[in-house]
């Protein structure tokens, strides 16, 4: 029997809430070194990769590898029933049946909650993702995640363009990043300049530009990532017209969540 135990219920609640809008199924892999999750959206434009090393958990035990495809919406629903301080135990039988059991144990209430999830397909993941070098990107933008969330919210104001999915154009030029969305009844633009002020030294917006770049993204991907970005203080956006764009938030040196989005030039 394989039996990882962990206590990051709140963290997983937030991850599942952020991902389950866009990604239906995910591939989970628990190993001695930690958890790796990958999911791809149904239009196969975006891939999310979550890596969380074992040290990121208060308590993590996993003697042997355990990997499976699971439905994210079902998991989000199950996690909504759990308390934030529950201990989670994940069990799968050695003879490899096609279900996994998540047990939520509340030490305070003396309550145990058990969910069995059937394995599902995982839509083509996991994939081998190369580590791209920063120098391969035309521009890299770093900003506080709160600022990124504000921008996404503003872009959504005119985001509903009717029959087509609303899109956002992100352009980097002259040390500034411009985000533009066109809706049915108007447009919304935000321009961010590089900032590194003395009063907020920990919250700079940094723009590294090798050359100008302009890319189009469906607003839904930006909105989903902005939800996931609550897990970190800062976001990094790597832009290239030849490589997948990467929206990344690091989780306190113990892992990361990355959205890879297929490039679409303006």
């Amino acid at each position: 029997m394989l039996e990882p135990r962990l206590v990051q219920t709140t963290f997983f609640k937030n991850v599942l809430e952020a991902l389950s809008d866009l990604f239906i199924e995910a591939h989970f892999e628990f190993s001695r070194t930690g958890l790796e999750l990958q999911a791809i959206d149904t239009s196969r434009v975006a891939l999310v990769a979550l890596v969380l090393r074992a040290e990121a958990f208060n308590h993590y035990l996993c003697d042997r590898g355990l990997s499976m495809g699971l439905n994210l919406a079902d998991m989000a629903k199950a996690f909504r029933c759990a308390n934030n301080d529950d201990i989670i135990t994940i069990k799968a039988e050695e003879d490899w049946t096609d279900t996994v059991t998540f047990t939520f144990e509340s030490p305070e209430d003396g309550e145990i909650l058990e969910f069995d999830f059937d394995f599902v397909g995982s839509n083509g993941v996991p994939l081998e993702i190369p580590e791209y070098q920063e120098s391969e990107y035309q521009a890299i933008v770093r900003m506080p995640s709160a600022k990124f969330m504000r921008i996404c919210k503003k872009l959504s104001s005119f985001g509903d363009s009717g029959d087509r999915d609303p899109v956002v154009i992100i352009s980097v030029y002259k040390e500034r990043v411009r985000s533009f969305a066109r809706g049915k009844t108007g447009t919304s633009t935000t321009v961010c300049l590089q900032t590194q002020t003395v009063d907020k030294p920990k919250e700079p917006t940094l723009i590294e530009m090798k050359e100008e770049v302009s890319l189009i993204f469906d607003l839904k991907y930006m909105n989903s990532f902005s939800k996931a970005s609550t897990l970190s203080d800062q976001v990094t956006i790597n832009l290239s017209s030849e490589l997948p764009a990467v929206f990344e938030c690091k989780i306190a040196e113990l892992g990361y969540i990355r959205y890879y989005i297929s490039p679409r030039k303006e």
């Binding site: 791809i40 891939l47 083509g124 994939l127 297929s262």
Partner: peptide, 14 residues
């Protein structure tokens, strides 16, 4: 605009 390709074309199956 240019057609958006599948994200899978950038990554290999392990």
């Amino acid at each position: 605009g240019a057609k958006q390709g599948s994200i899978m074309s950038f990554f290999k199956k392990p």
